[in-house]
């Protein structure tokens, strides 16, 4: 099974060819929110002072997303793109900091991190939220960081993200338990489908 990785930890991962050469580092992850998966990565150069590169790495060119590197087949995987588009994509596809609402219109928190499946799928699996008190009850003085699965129908409108209200049943603050529960839910979904 593929593990889950937070996209914040993808920043600074090297982009490495199967020939072993590092091409760039990941700067930002751009999501295709309608498909619910990674659309592309924006890149920075390899040295400390090199700024953003005017090139990006589209997801279909990724060989495998691993915990220590993003593997690509060869240097031809990177695409040139005009800087204006790079900026626009980065703003549009950014989910971090977006407000999270349930489909009955209740604000439940803001997105701290997005968990994606590593490997070849690039599927967006869940969100890590800074939860409001409506979602997690308890001490006002404790900061609540919880995981919420993405709904089957993920909707993003502007800077807000809508999750189904039943996703609240799967809220947990412990990642391994969360992965197990989501796995269970998927298994059940498959049983129902078959």
């Amino acid at each position: 099974m593929n593990g889950l990785t937070g996209v914040r930890s993808l920043t600074t991962l090297p982009v490495v060819t199967l020939g072993g050469d590092a091409l760039a580092h990941v700067r930002d992850t751009v999501f295709d929110t309608s498909a619910g998966r990674i659309a592309s990565f924006t890149l920075t150069g390899r040295t400390l002072l090199s700024g953003p590169l005017p090139r990006d790495l589209p997801w279909p060119a990724v060989h495998c997303l691993g915990p220590h590197a993003v593997m690509v087949r060869d240097a031809g995987a990177l695409c040139d793109l005009p800087p204006s588009r790079a900026h626009r994509d980065a703003v549009r596809g950014r989910l971090l900091g977006a407000q999270v609402l349930t489909d009955d219109g209740e604000a439940v928190g803001t997105v701290l991190d997005v968990l994606v499946e590593s490997g070849t799928s690039g599927r967006l699996a869940a969100f890590r939220l800074a939860a409001n008190r409506e979602l997690v009850h308890g001490s006002r003085h404790r900061r609540h960081r919880v995981y919420v699965p993405r709904g089957e129908a993920l909707r993003v409108t502007g800077r807000a993200l809508v999750i189904p209200s039943h996703a609240r049943t799967y809220v947990t603050d412990d990642l391994p338990a969360f992965v197990a529960r989501v796995g269970e839910r998927h298994a059940r979904g498959r049983e129902v489908a078959s």
Partner: peptide, 10 residues
């Protein structure tokens, strides 16, 4: 072995 480059042996 797949390849040896400046970053790693793949």
């Amino acid at each position: 072995l797949l390849g040896l480059g400046d970053h790693a042996l793949v």
